[in-house]
Design a protein around this nucleic acid. Structure first.
Lengths: 209, 209
DNA sequence: TAGATTGTTAATCGATTAACAATC
DNA sequence: TAGATTGTTAATCGATTAACAATC
């Protein structure tokens, strides 16, 4: 099984695309050419990726839509339930919490946010998207008790590293970092940076030309 | 001048990294090896990228930190001011608006959000992060009057395409799409998708193993 | 069967890395 | 000068694409 990153042009959007393709008419199969056109990639790419995750098509017909959807979900790990905590209940944190509450949000990808933490007295005890904000004091204990392996970091950049250290010490294995700073973590811990400026750079370049 | 995407391992974080490197001691230069280590890439990569954007180093010494910072800012387009509108003043929209207000937020990258639009009567007229939410009715006119070329889309997925169509018709040249759906636009219009599920896939894969 | 699509091998392309002379 | 670092060329590596036999 290849890593999630290996499917260059077949991101999570894959399932979204398929939903659209199939919505138009009630077909049961889809060809690699159809998917390739919707994603604006090479058809060979699609067939190779599908082959890599064990999907087999039918000659002259294409691929079974249900199988493809399930295959993508499974290969990307969205079929499994993941519990997470969120640290930093500011604006962005609140937005992500709201997103996690809906069935069409994080839940769709198997992610469930169990608790939100903040060290701001004014935020502690408040309800954000159905979750009561807890003091960071009890964070490590909570993580250990629930065996949490994923943490979402939405704290200010200045305290992001300290936050990361505490989370890792408590046993977290993956950090989803929304703070605009580089985190250093021990080997084996994954950091996924969601750095807004990267997208902005692409846009700025396009508008400049 | 290469495209912003060409600097694979030198994203906008570059400037952040440099700030950290220089914060430790007041040096005036930095070597490609130092930068490479902080970014966890090959030193040659750094030198090539620097060369591509016209930065020249000093033998046995390294690169002038000020020049590097400025070079990166310019090559990524962050030295120019960009005006944008935001459509969809929900949770995520509000978070991005809040982010845009601070000097350390969007402003740092030259982005200024001039107005926020929403079609929800309950949101119209409200103040979000210092901006009064306007009705989408007046959106096209506002875009034309101010010559806006960039729009941030934070509406629900169901109305994202329709929103995009209106924006493009009004003259917008780039869409920053935070709605979890694929947008189709005319040639020449850039769509940058900020799809949360892509990051989640990487995390899910790591935790699965 | 005829024809369209898959599955895979081979070729191309680009990106990354290694090596090293030039430079300060 | 001696030594460390740049700047660039060449080699390697991987990813993308083209081609086509196998399949239904």
């Amino acid at each position: 099984m290849p890593a999630a990153d290996d499917f260059s042009p077949l991101p999570a959007q894959g399932t979204d695309i398929l939903a659209e393709v199939t919505a138009k008419e009630p077909i049961k199969t889809v060809t690699s050419a159809q998917i390739a056109e919707a994603l604006d990639v090479d058809p060979t790419q699609v067939r190779k990726d599908f082959s890599a995750i064990g999907l087999v098509g039918i000659g002259r017909v294409g691929f079974d839509v249900c199988e493809v959807c399930r295959g993508i979900r499974v290969s990307l790990g969205f079929d499994q339930q993941f519990d997470a905590v969120l640290v930093g209940a500011g604006h962005l944190g609140g937005a992500l919490l709201a997103y996690s509450g809906f069935a069409s949000g994080f839940a769709r990808y198997g992610l469930r946010v169990l608790a939100a933490f903040d060290n701001d007295e004014r935020k502690i005890g408040r309800s954000v998207a159905g979750l009561t904000v807890r003091p960071t004091k009890g964070m490590s204990g909570f993580i250990r008790r629930h065996g949490i392996r994923l943490a979402i970091i939405t704290v200010p950049a200045e305290i992001a590293q300290k936050t990361a250290d505490r989370l890792v010490a408590a046993g977290v294995r993956a950090l989803w970092n929304f703070a605009p700073t580089q985190l250093s973590v021990p080997q084996g811990v994954l950091v996924r940076n969601e750095h807004i400026a990267i997208g902005l750079a692409e846009i700025a370049y396009h508008l400049k030309a």
